[in-house]
Design a protein around this nucleic acid. Sequence first.
DNA 1: GTCTATACGAAGATAGAC
DNA 2: GTCTATCTTCGTATAGAC
Lengths: 205, 205
Amino acid sequence: MSSRKSDSRERMVLSAAALLREYGASATSVDHVLAHSGAPRGSVYHHFPGGRAQLIDEAVALAGDFITGLIDAAMQADDPVEAVDAFFALWRDRLVESGFRAGCPIVAVAVETNDDAPQLARSAAAVFARWQEALAALLVRHGLAEERSLRLGAFIIAAVEGAVIMCRAERSTAPIEAAAAEIHNLLIYALRDRPGTGSGPRPKA
Amino acid sequence: MSSRKSDSRERMVLSAAALLREYGASATSVDHVLAHSGAPRGSVYHHFPGGRAQLIDEAVALAGDFITGLIDAAMQADDPVEAVDAFFALWRDRLVESGFRAGCPIVAVAVETNDDAPQLARSAAAVFARWQEALAALLVRHGLAEERSLRLGAFIIAAVEGAVIMCRAERSTAPIEAAAAEIHNLLIYALRDRPGTGSGPRPKA
DNA sequence: GTCTATACGAAGATAGAC
DNA sequence: GTCTATCTTCGTATAGAC
C-alpha cells in the first residue's frame, strides 16, 4: 500500500468504549482516551475530524454491535426462556467481573447526552432498537404475536438497563437477579398462554 | 432572630435537582445552578462547605424524598395493580410534559458518578432502596410474601428507570408503555397465584 | 501520521473586602 | 451573607513543523 495503516484509530475507539462502560460519557475525554489507548495525541483530529463527538459516536456503534453479537449468540438456545436467562446472566457476569464498575456504554451516552449533541441520542436509540428486534425475533419464532414480542423486547431491555444501574449503585447483584427471575416468570406465562399450546413449565417461586 | 435567613440555599438545591433531571449530573455545574436559581455566587461555599458534591448530594436527597412522596400517594389506591399503573403513568407524564427532556435525577447521578465521589452512589442507592420498600409494602399488604414483594419492588423500579432512559433517547413513550403493560400483566399473575385467593382479573392482551 | 506548542473556555475552589 | 477577583486544573480544538 502507499501508506502503512496504523491501528491508533481502532485502539482509540475501543478505549472510548471501555471508558464509557466504566466511567460514563463525560469522563470519556480525549485525554483519557489517549492515555488509555496509548495513541499519539497528534493524530486525534486526523482520524476523527468530527472531534470528540465523532469518537464517542463510533464507540457507541462499536459497543452496540458487540453486544448485539452477544444477544444473537444467546438467542440461539432452543428454549426462549433459557435464552433470555442467558442474556441476563451476561450482564450479571459483566458487573461481577468488573467489581460493579462496568455499566452499559449506551446508557451512559443516552443519559449524559444533552441537546447540543442530538446525534448521540439517535445513535443510542438505534442500538436499543436493534437489541429489541433481536429479542422480539426470538419470541416470534416461538409463537408470540409480533406486537407482543416487540413489547417484551423493549421491556426486557428496560429491565436489564435499569437493573444494571441499580446494581452499580448498591454494589450488589440483587436487582439484576430480581429482574431476571421476574422476567423468567413472565415469559413462562406469556408462552404458556400463546394459542395452540398446552401448559408449559411452572414459574419459579 | 440574630440574622435574617435567606432562601438562596433552598433555591440552589431545588435548581440542582431540576438540572439533574433535564441535563444530567455533569452538566449540573455550580455556575448553572447559580444561573438557574439566581442565587449569589459569593455564598456558595458558605452554604455548601462541601462544595459541588454536597450540593448534588442534597439535591439527590430532596428529589428522592419528593418522588417517594409521589409513590406513597400512588400506593393509596385500593387495587395494587392500579397503584403500580399510576406509578408508571406518573413517569410517562413527566416525560411527555417535558418534551422528553426530564429523566430521573437519581439515575443521572448513579450513572455519572465515579470512584472519586462514592458518597453519591450511596445516596442514590439509598433512594432506590426507599422506593423499593414503598412498593414492596403495598404488595405485602395485598398478600404477597415479603421476599417476593421486595423482588418485585426492585424489578418495577428497574423497569421504570430503564424505560425512562429509552423513552428519552428515542423521544417516544413506547418503552414505558410497554413496561407498564407487562408489569401490569405480571402483577395480575402474581396476585392471582397468591395463597387463599380465587382467580382475579384477566391479564391485558 | 505524528510531533510540540498553544489558544481558549469552563469548571471547582479560595481569598479577602464589605 | 454576599461581593469581586483570582488560582488552578482540565478539556476541546487548532497551528505549523517534521
